[in-house]
Amino acid sequence: MARLAALPEALAAAVRDGDAVAMEGFTHLIPHAAAHELIRQGRRDLTLIRMTPDVIYDQLIGAGCAARLVFSWGGNPGVGSLHRLRDAVEHDWPRDLAIEEHSHAGMVNRYVAGASGLPFAVLRGYAGTDLEGVTDSIAPITCPFTGERLTAVSALNPDAAVIHAQRADREGNVQLWGIVGAQKEAVLAAARSVVTVEEIVDELAPVPGAILLPHWAVDWVCEVPGGAAPSYAAGYTDRDNDFYRRWDAISRDRETFRSWIDANVLGVQAK
């Protein structure tokens, strides 16, 4: 049952050291403000789950919050590498980072299985690739009806899912639209969930094609305007493409990165 709460309070209750956390949002509605709060709270040893780690996980990894990354595409979209992710994988800085790697189709089906209460999902995928050899959560399976060889991927059931959405009402019903990625599946697959929203409104006006997460399927709702920046919330804010470009230089160097985190995350109070 959804509670309206301040972000620090909600995250302190929902995410503990060592948890598996999915902060979803496929290049849209990325919950950056929540990630910054996790850095401020000093969370450690997290398993970070996300289809596209993006700048949000580059920051969490560089800040030393993560022990493990479960993902399918780890770049800065349209710009290049995620330098903090690469430094962790290539040089164990600031610590070693275990990785569990999939394709997008595999990852999203793992969320679907988790949301559906199933131990695994089936897809046509991975055949002939080297991914099956390096990732334990991929295995061949034979169709019991046709005998066809397919691929199974184990379910993802994170301890916590954290997403950003456009808005919620005072009961905690959450509405999101535009590119909706795997947010619904991540929330339904997770044991606990935190949703940050651009605004809390008296009544949710229907939006064509919008997803509604009912208040009884969400645990915490926090009003955090601009909480997706430098990602965006369609209808509210624009993607800050310039920041994504600037992140390349900020993140390339360890000290520049640390100064940026000090000035823009640790030295800032949650809204």
Binding site: F26, T27, H28, H104, V112, A182, E185, R239
Partner: peptide, 29 residues
């Protein structure tokens, strides 16, 4: 051309926008 596959212009100009599960399972697979 968008900087990223998530740019707002891709969604605003689309015929329809579907979830990640739908794009891979129903449309691609």
């Amino acid at each position: 051309p968008p900087l990223s596959i998530g740019d707002g212009s891709l969604a605003e100009t689309a015929d329809t926008v579907v979830s990640s599960a739908e794009i891979f399972n129903y449309w691609l697979q």
